[in-house]
């Protein structure tokens, strides 16, 4: 195996998705919710009846699929990104506290972690949506609640091994304050594993959001996400495959690419994985 091959394609797709999410509407040829009843269910370009005007075809209301996918990218990526960011921050902080302080605090935090990891995700999502209602904010909240525990667990185990290392002992001997030790020694040495988990988690979060939206528990119209587009196109699967294939493909592509990049990072930073 050539050791230094970068997954260039996967990195490119990830960058493209992030750019699409940030720029959103600027890239899209049409407004995502612009209906055109003169061009309903136009097939993608290249098929009989397809036009260059609608490269990926249109849906049952004549909305441009490409524009809808780009709009969906925005919501899907932003929810995934926000969820990973917030869940990561909370998890890292709690893991740091648990690992560093140990004792009762550690026990309390880790039991909470176990409880959250044990709850079935869909059940928790259902309960939360029932209690709080749907919407972008709530879907992010659901994803934070289901994800933070994994960061806490990872960081705690990293802290436990790092805090036994000589340079941490020496910092204690020198009288460095615990908070400084955590920020200067423990976090930097744990950062690669956190980063790897976060990148892998983006793929996971995209799937979660799509599943929720597909079930009608997540993003609600007129907002748009890949899962929601998929759900709306399901009825017409038999006569207009492009309504479901494009969003499905987008989800698969995004997840595969983020996982590839994450895996590659893991191999790069894990000395046991190298060589």
């Amino acid at each position: 195996m050539p050791p230094a091959r970068l997954p260039i394609l996967a990195i490119a797709v990830c960058v493209l998705l992030i750019v699409a999410a940030l720029l959103g509407g600027v890239l899209a040829p049409y407004a995502a919710d612009e209906a055109d009843f003169g061009a309903v269910m136009v097939p993608p370009y290249g098929l009989e009846g397809g036009t260059v005007a609608h490269l990926l075809g249109t849906d049952q209301l004549g909305r441009d699929m490409l524009s809808r996918l780009i709009a969906g990218t925005r919501i899907s990526m932003l929810t995934a990104g926000a969820a990973v960011l917030v869940a990561g921050t909370i998890g890292v902080l709690l893991g740091l506290i648990a690992g560093y302080l140990g004792g009762l605090v550690d026990a309390a935090i880790m039991r909470l972690v176990d409880a959250f990891l044990a709850l079935p995700f869909i059940l928790m999502a259902l309960a939360l949506v029932a209690a709080l209602g749907t919407g972008v904010g709530n879907i992010i909240l659901v994803m934070i609640l289901t994800n933070w525990a994994r960061y806490a667990r990872l960081v705690r185990s990293e802290v436990l091994s790092i805090k036994r290392r000589d340079f941490v002992l020496l910092a204690r001997v020198a009288g460095v304050r615990p908070l400084t030790i955590a920020m200067r020694h423990v976090l930097p040495n744990a950062q690669t594993s956190i980063l790897v988990l976060a990148v892998l988690d983006v793929g996971r979060a995209i799937i979660l959001e799509s599943s929720l939206s597909f079930l009608g528990l997540g993003i609600q119209p007129p907002d748009m996400s890949w899962g929601l587009i998929l759900a709306q196109g399901r009825t017409y699967m038999g006569i207009a495959w492009w309504l479901t294939v494009w969003p499905g493909l987008a989800i698969v592509l995004a997840v595969v690419c983020f996982n590839t990049v994450g895996e590659r990072l893991r191999v790069k930073f894990d000395p046991r994985g190298a060589l």
Partner: peptide
């Protein structure tokens, strides 16, 4: 803490 300092065995583990 200013009076006492330490040097340990492992020159690889002692430096962050």
């Amino acid at each position: 803490r200013r009076l006492v300092q330490a040097v340990f065995q492992d020159p690889y583990g002692a430096l962050s």
